[in-house]
């Protein structure tokens, strides 16, 4: 059983993710953003088509390759390199500190505290009618699951197959799929938590929702 409170405490102590930017290949390096503490942004746009902040230019064989910030955050540290210095592939160039958002914190907690039931095959998934009605009327947390329970219908190329739940007993805490979309193999379908942990998880999630301070 995961101790969610300890997990939250750990996240509070280090409320960010360190992203290490490494040289994708050998070449001479030129820092564009070179001051620690500088704010950077990640890719943006509806399709993430606009690249993030330009951090570094890495040149090899007269080919300057831009390296952009993969996430929003601030520059934490730079490698001790002179402009134009040669670096090897994989060498650490920069570290970015990305402050976790509420959704990311909740995601991390749930990932570690829930059991994820993965899609065994690619296709469209539906809950069996009884479960579906229960979820629609009373919410997903009203459904208790146990090993061997017939829970899903997998629809692929107009053929329907019943899928049984395998995993620890508990209740459905989160649903990760939409009935209209095709789900890839091994994508999570539901997150199950033991019944006795439900209250604790809910409390931590609501505390994160209300107390977690997001940094710009």
């Amino acid at each position: 059983m995961v101790d969610v409170k300890t997990l939250l405490q750990e996240l509070r102590e280090e409320p960010y993710e360190k992203i290490v930017i490494r040289a994708p290949h050998a070449g001479t390096v030129e820092f564009v953003s070179s001051t620690p503490g500088t704010r950077v942004v990640g890719p943006s746009g509806t399709w993430k088509e606009k690249p993030g902040t330009l951090l570094i230019r890495l040149e090899r064989e007269k080919n300057k390759k831009p390296i952009y910030a993969p996430q929003k955050g601030e520059i934490m540290a730079l490698a001790d390199l002179k402009p134009g210095e040669f670096v090897q592939a994989g060498q650490e160039l920069m570290t970015i500190r990305h402050y976790l958002t509420r959704e990311e914190v909740i995601g991390r907690i749930l990932r570690q505290s829930l059991f994820l039931f993965l899609a065994p095959e690619k296709g469209r998934y539906y809950f069996i009618p009884d479960v579906d009605i229960k979820i629609k009327t009373k919410g997903s947390q009203s459904v208790a699951v146990e090993e061997g329970l017939e829970l899903f219908i997998l629809s692929r190329m107009k053929r329907e197959t019943a899928i049984r739940y395998t995993g620890p007993s508990g209740i459905i805490y989160a649903i990760y799929f939409d009935t209209n979309d095709s789900v890839e193999r091994e994508s999570p379908l539901i997150g199950v938590c033991p019944e006795d942990q439900l209250g604790q998880i809910q409390e931590v999630v609501s505390r994160v929702q209300s107390d977690w301070e997001e940094q710009d």
Binding site: R60, E61, K62, N63, K65
Partner: peptide, 20 residues
């Protein structure tokens, strides 16, 4: 005629290596 390497615009998606 240029002695340089070229990066494919799809390198980020398909992992194409630089080409001479």
């Amino acid at each position: 005629k240029e002695d340089q390497s070229i990066t494919c615009p799809n390198a980020g998606v398909h992992g194409c290596l630089d080409q001479w």
